[in-house]
Amino acid sequence: MRRAALLILAMLPGLAACGRALELDAEIDISHVVGSEPLRLDEGQYRNAAGEAFTVQRLRYYLSLPRLRRADGSWFEPQHPAESADAYHLVDEAKAESRRLRITGLPAGKYVGIEFLLGVDDARNHAGAQTGALDPARGMFWTWKSGYIFLVLEGTSPQSPASGGRYSYHVGGGEPSLARRIYLPFGERPIRVEERVKPTVHLAVDVGALLSAVNPVRIAQLPEAMDPVAARPLADNAAAMFRVDHLHHEPRRRGGG
């Protein structure tokens, strides 16, 4: 009897590993660009559609609640514990590791596109003290008025009338919310999630589009956007920042990874 129990105990890690092996993952890698140039914080000199020169000192935003679409139109949505902030990802150009996110627990199959929320959904935006990416200590929470800052873009421009030639755009809040759902199809070819194949989706995120896609922004006229009314044109531009640059498939190392 005891020996049987020991035997089962000994097998447990193996069983668990079997369970894990079926849960695959896909990786999303993000590169920031301005038009056709790579984004370099502080150093890069860029021009917006209005011809204004600018630099970027800070770029941060929330990518939340990612889900993958199957060819039949159904969705894979990662499941997370109710309290956790695992479905919220804070991308920060200054932190290389933040530009890579993994979607885990993925069933094998083909997926034709990805959707996520740029920002934080109303439920979490109005909830109490949170952890992880939603920890207010991350500096993306307005303390004088409850709510997350969905996107921060700050830098300098000789055209800015603000002190130090600075410009600061903080997009967040709003009724209706300035958070934006963004769907990106993978194009001709779906990604393949298989036991031996791991896909990586490379996204190119264009800061230039944030300043010009739908509503051209002139830094000379808008050196600061810190409330939902001023930031709404930027939120409407934000969806156009994202595109799928290319896809990769690599052999998956045995045992997940």
């Binding site: 109005h126 207010p136 303390t143 004088w144 409850s146």
Partner: peptide, 22 residues
């Protein structure tokens, strides 16, 4: 301005003319 009692302390904590802390 504040939706949830849990988040209220962040306002005076961060206000430069109150506690001025992060």
């Amino acid at each position: 301005a504040i939706h949830n009692l849990e988040l209220q302390p962040l306002a005076p904590l961060g206000n430069p003319v109150e506690m001025g802390e992060t």
